[in-house]
Design a protein around this nucleic acid. Structure first.
Lengths: 242, 242
DNA sequence: CCCTTTTATAGTCGGGCTGACCATAAAAGG
DNA sequence: CCTTTTATGGTCAGCCCGACTATAAAAGGG
C-alpha cells in the first residue's frame, strides 16, 4: 500500500472503491444476467459482474453508468435506471487489497447482444441459474440482487423496465413469473394490474396481431405511478423464521 | 492527496471510507435520533450523525458497531441489529476530500442517556423533527433512514426493536404511529398484529398493573418471524406519481 | 365510596379484494 | 371447418379491512 491519508487527527489507510452491476433482462421467458469474462488475475478466465473503479471526481452512480456503457456497448444507457443494492466491504473479498464495492441493479428489456469492451474480455447474457461460481463475492451480490428485485416487483412498477415501451399484459406477467419463479393465474393477474392506478395505461388504439398465436392482445405502456397501491403481493409465502 | 494506488493497469486515487449511523429510538412516544456535536472543522459545532472511518481490517458493519459503542457508550452493542441503508459517494459531500460513506440504521428501546465519547464532543438524543441542518449530507441520510424504517415496519417485525424485551400492544402501536406519523385504530391494530404468525407471542402468565392508568395490558415478546405475512400496510397512501 | 376517566379488549357489520374457477372471443394452423 | 392457442370477461364464496359499538378493569377525585 502507498501512503496513508491524513485526516483530522488520524492517519487513515486508503481504500479502493469500485462498483459492481447486476444487469438483468428477460430472454425467452427466463431471467438472464450480464456477465463479463475476466482477462487477468485474480480470477482470470472466470465470469464476473461488470464493474470497475471510481474515478476521482465521479459518484458511484456515475461510475456505474459509465462502466455499463463501456463494458457492454449499450446505447441508451442515459435513460436507464440504476438502483443501489448495497455495499460490500468485507476484508479479503479481493485477495490483493482492500476494495469496497457499491453494487447496483439495472433492468433491461430483451437485450441487444452484448459485445465486450473496455476491460472485459467478453460480455455475455447468461441464464440466471447458470451464473454460478463467479469471481469475488459476486455469487452473493447476484443472489441479493434477485431478492431485491423480487421485492420491488411487489411495490413498484419495476417489472415494466423488463418490457419494451409497448407491451402486453401477458409479457408483464412473464416478468413476474420469471423473477418470482411462480406461475400466476392470468385473469387474476390482469384484474390486479389494471386495478392499480397508474401502473399501466392502454396505448390509444392498438392491438397486437401478426406475432401472436391466439387472440391479439392489447398493448399497454408504463403508467406514471412510482409505487403500487395496492401492491401486487406474491402468492402465499409462508412466514419464514429465517 | 497522497499517492495513488496501483491496481491492474490503472492508477487509482485512494478514497477515504466512513460509516454513518442513524440510530433511532422512541422517547415519550416521539421518534428521536442520536446525534453528536462535531468538535472540529469542517462543520465544527454542528450536529451530525455518529460515525467514523473504517480501519484497515474491518468491514463497514464492524466499523459501524465499533463507532456506535465508542461514541455513545452503549453496553449491549453486540446484540444490536445494524442494517445497511445505502452508500453516499457524491464528490464534494466532504469539503476536504473524497469520502465515501456507508450509512446504517439501528433501532433501540427507550434509550440510556448517551454520553459523548471518542471523537464526539457531546452526544444527545434529539427529537426527529428538531434534527435539521446537520453536518455534511446527514439531513438526507436521516430522511432516507426514516423512509426505510417506515417501509420495514410494514414487512418485518422491526418495530419490536424499539420496545423493551416485554411490551404491550399499546407500546407497539405507538411505534407504528410515531414512525408513520399516523394515528391507528386500536382494536384493528391489535387484530392485525395477532393475526400475523410469529410476530408477537404472549408472555406466559403476566399482565402489567402498577404503571398503567387503565385496564392492565397483556405483555408480549417478539416472536420468531423474520417477515410479516400478511404485512401491516400503512393506511391509504395514495398512488404518488413522484 | 361512588363515579368519572382511561386504557385494554371483544365483537359486529358491510364493502372490497382474493383466489379458484368457468365462459367467451379472436386469431393461427391443419 | 375444426382444433389449438391466447386474451379477456365474469362469477362466487371467503377473508381481510376499516369503522364502529360495547364491555372490562384499573386509577383518581370528590
Amino acid at each position: 500500500m502507498s501512503g496513508a491519508l491524513r485526516y483530522d487527527k488520524y492517519a487513515h489507510e486508503p481504500f479502493a472503491v469500485t462498483v459492481d452491476l447486476a444487469v438483468l433482462t428477460l430472454r425467452a421467458g427466463a431471467l438472464h444476467v450480464l456477465l463479463v469474462e475476466r482477462g487477468q488475475e485474480p480470477y482470470a478466465g472466470r465470469w464476473a459482474l461488470p464493474g470497475g473503479f471510481l474515478l476521482p471526481d465521479e459518484s458511484a452512480e456515475s461510475a456505474a453508468r459509465r462502466e455499463l456503457a463501456e463494458e457492454t456497448g449499450l446505447a441508451d444507457v442515459s435513460g436507464l435506471r440504476l438502483d443501489q443494492l448495497r455495499t460490500y466491504s468485507e476484508p479479503g473479498r479481493d485477495p490483493r487489497m482492500r476494495v469496497v464495492s457499491v453494487a447496483f441493479t439495472a433492468l433491461l428489456p430483451d437485450a441487444p447482444e452484448a459485445h465486450g469492451g473496455g476491460d472485459a474480455a467478453r460480455a455475455r447474457w447468461v441464464p440466471y441459474d447458470d451464473a454460478r461460481e463467479l469471481a469475488f463475492d459476486h455469487d452473493r451480490i447476484l443472489a441479493d440482487a434477485r431478492t431485491r428485485i423480487g421485492d420491488r416487483l411487489e411495490n413498484t412498477p419495476a417489472a415494466t423496465a423488463f418490457c419494451p415501451p409497448e407491451f402486453t399484459l401477458g409479457e408483464l406477467q412473464q416478468v413476474y413469473e420469471a423473477v418470482w419463479g411462480t406461475p400466476l393465474d392470468r385473469p387474476n393477474f390482469r384484474r390486479k394490474v389494471l386495478a392499480v392506478p397508474g401502473f399501466v395505461a392502454p396505448v390509444p388504439g392498438g392491438a397486437r396481431l401478426t406475432g401472436g398465436r391466439g387472440k391479439p392482445a392489447a398493448l399497454y405502456r408504463a403508467g406514471p405511478a412510482a409505487t403500487l397501491h395496492p401492491p401486487l403481493l406474491r402468492p402465499q409465502r409462508e412466514g419464514r423464521t429465517t
